[in-house]
Structure formats: C-alpha cells, structure tokens
Amino acid sequence: MLTSRKPLIRPLFAAILVALLQTAVLGYMIESRASILRNGTDVVLKTIPVDPRDLLRGDYVILAYDISTIAPDKVIGGFPKEATDARMSVRLEKQPDGFWTVSEASFSPLPAKAGSVVARTQPIFYYPTPDAPQLAVRVDYGIERYYVPEGEGLVLEEARNASALSVTASVDDTGRMQIRLIAVDGKPLYEEPLY
C-alpha cells in the first residue's frame, strides 16, 4: 500500500524552495522587529512589581508596566456589550518626570495626535459585567517578556520589584512595540541591537 510515490518536483528544487521559504519566515520575524526599533518613537516606561512567586519562568523575566493597567475613566467610546476578543488603542503621553503614561484608551482606533503615540495592545478577552462597577482593564503590549542569559534574571527581578527598573520601548505607526533598552536606576543595563 505504501509505495514510494513520484515526487512533485526534483528533490534539489524542493530543498531549495522549502529552505528558502523557512528562512524567509525567520527573516520576516527578525525584520518586523527591527523595523519597529528603526522607525518607531521611543517611550520610557515605568515597571511595576509582579507577584514574586511568578517571577522567572524559564529564562525570561516577566515585566509589567504601569501602562499595563487601564483605569476605566481613561476609556473613551464605551466598553463592548458582549464578551469578545478585542484589541485596545492606548494613547501614551510624556509626563514632566520623563516617563510616558496613559492619557486615554479605546476599543476602537485612536487618531494620531502631536506629542503622543498610540500603542495597540495584544488581543485581550473582555467579559462585560453589567451589574458590577467597571473594573480596570489589564492589557499586554508584547513587551512583557525579556530573555536573559541563565542566572542573570534575578538582578533584573530585584530591580523591578524595587521599582528601580525602567524600560525604553519603540512604538511604530501601527502601534506595535519592542523593547530597546532596559535600565536600572537610569543606568542602561541591556541595550538591544537591531539584529
């Protein structure tokens, strides 16, 4: 039943085609990140402590930001009426202390405005609770994981939990974010090259 069947194309062409395609996928992953760092606007973000028992999963540090929690009074345009998988648009503005914070957020796209950047969150599962008071919304931006060499995570976590860690991230026109720099007490600790 199982006999060797005639291949679609000659093996050499097949190999080149498949390897090219797979390399292209990897290249696309790397380049789409690099383009954010190259063309994006830099924002400096304050990190907040994370439950210490959930710190180091594998070899990455989990980062949480003060912009990860959206207060209900910042949300314009209302909340979805039904449970849904939604993305939010979050407008970030620079404060006098140099850190960027949430000025407004919406479940629909926000227009560009001078002096601010609009970040897009990862899809969140939003579940309305009509009878209860509106709670703050927890969102992710795709910059919540930072991989470090084995054993170096602890330093970052201690700094993060002492609220001494700041992250500079790049935001591109479509609202995607990437980490550019991690600093402890304002001193750069990890600086990300483009490639």
Binding site: Q22, V25, L26, Y60, G142, Y147, I179, E192
Partner: peptide, 12 residues
C-alpha cells in the same frame, strides 16, 4: 528556529 528567534529577539 522559530522558538529561538522569538527568544533571542524577545518576541513575546
């Protein structure tokens, strides 16, 4: 390779 590129470039 997908996993490693994600890890090396912090793509969460």
């Amino acid at each position: 390779a997908i996993a490693l590129v994600g890890q090396m470039y912090h793509l969460s």
